[in-house]
Deep mutational scan, measured.
Amino acid sequence: APRKVEMRRDPVLGFGFVAGSEKPVVVRSVTPGGPSEGKLIPGDQIVMINDEPVSAAPRERVIDLVRSCKESILLTVIQP
């Protein structure tokens, strides 16, 4: 079942996760003590960023979407 995860941007750590460059977009790592800790799990597949589906989106679009979130971000993720 999809999970909705909302995180506030940390001034130092950002959102505190690293996503892979393949499709679908998969969470590779979560920064300890960062905003994503306890919310995202490595292996989570990101299916939506805010209200935009990203399963088939180019990597550049995913990066732009994350960067455009100055304060908070809403991710919809699934464990494949």
Rank of each mutant, 00 (worst) to 15 (best):
V12Q: 14
T31I: 06
V30P: 01
V30A: 03
G20T: 10
G33F: 08
G43H: 06
M48T: 13
S36C: 11
F17N: 00
P42H: 07
L65K: 13
T76I: 06
V12T: 15
P24Y: 02
R3F: 06
V66S: 03
V62M: 04
A19V: 14
A1C: 14
A1R: 04
M7N: 00
D64R: 11
V5H: 04
M7I: 15
G34P: 00
V30E: 01
S72N: 12
V62C: 07
I73R: 02
E52H: 12
G14M: 04
V12E: 10
E52R: 11
I49V: 14
L74R: 15
R28V: 09
I78V: 14
V18E: 13
V54T: 07
S68A: 12
D44M: 06
N50T: 02
G33K: 10
A19D: 06
L74D: 15
L74E: 14
M7L: 15
M7T: 04
D51A: 09
L74M: 15
S29G: 10
P35N: 05
D64I: 01
K39N: 09
I78H: 13
K39V: 10
E37V: 10
S21F: 13
P42G: 05
S72W: 05
D10S: 08
A19Y: 09
P11L: 07
G20S: 14
Q79A: 15
V5M: 06
V30K: 01
P53E: 14
E6P: 06
E71M: 06
K70M: 06
R3E: 03
L75F: 08
V77H: 02
L40N: 00
V62K: 00
P58G: 13
I63V: 14
S72R: 13
M48C: 14
S68P: 03
L40Q: 01
F17K: 01
S29T: 12
S72D: 13
F15P: 01
G38L: 05
K23P: 04
E37S: 11
E60S: 14
Q79C: 15
V12F: 09
T76K: 12
P53V: 13
R8E: 15
S68T: 11
E37T: 07
E22F: 11
R59H: 10
D10Q: 04
R9H: 05
V30Y: 03
Q45R: 12
P32K: 12
V54I: 08
I63M: 12
E6G: 07
N50P: 00
V77W: 00
I49G: 01
P80F: 04
G43I: 00
V5G: 00
K70W: 04
P53C: 12
P53S: 14
D64G: 12
D51L: 06
G33W: 05
P32F: 05
K23Y: 15
D10G: 03
G34Y: 01
G34D: 01
V54W: 00
G14P: 00
P2L: 13
A19L: 15
I41W: 14
S21V: 05
Q79S: 15
E60H: 12
S72F: 06
I41D: 10
P32H: 11
L74F: 15
V77E: 02
G14C: 03
R3V: 06
F17Q: 01
R28Q: 15
D64L: 03
S29R: 10
I73C: 11
K39P: 02
V26M: 13
L74Y: 15
D44H: 04
P58F: 04
D64N: 10
P35H: 02
G20L: 08
R8W: 11
G20I: 11
G20D: 15
R28I: 11
I63L: 15
V66C: 09
P80R: 07
E52M: 12
L40F: 01
R9K: 12
R67A: 13
V12C: 10
V30R: 01
R67D: 13
R9T: 04
A57V: 14
C69D: 04
K23D: 11
E52Q: 13
C69Q: 12
P53H: 12
I49T: 02
G33P: 01
V66Q: 03
A19C: 14
I49R: 01
Q45F: 05
V66T: 06
G38Q: 08
Q45D: 03
V25Q: 04
C69P: 04
M48D: 08
A19W: 11
S72C: 08
D64V: 03
E71F: 06
P80T: 10
T31Q: 12
L40V: 06
T31Y: 08
G16Y: 00
C69E: 10
G34W: 00
V27C: 04
I63H: 14
A57E: 13
E60P: 09
N50V: 02
R8V: 12
F15N: 01
V27E: 02
A57G: 05
G20E: 15
S21R: 09
V12N: 15
S68Q: 14
I41C: 13
V47G: 03
G43F: 05
D64A: 09
T31M: 10
E71W: 05
A57H: 09
V25R: 04
T76Y: 14
G16M: 00
D44S: 05
S36P: 01
F17D: 00
Q45Y: 08
S55T: 06
I41R: 15
M48G: 13
F15H: 01
R61L: 10
V77Y: 01
I78N: 11
D10H: 07
F15I: 02
E60W: 08
I49F: 03
V5A: 05
P24R: 03
D44Y: 02
V25W: 09
F17E: 01
G38F: 08
A57D: 11
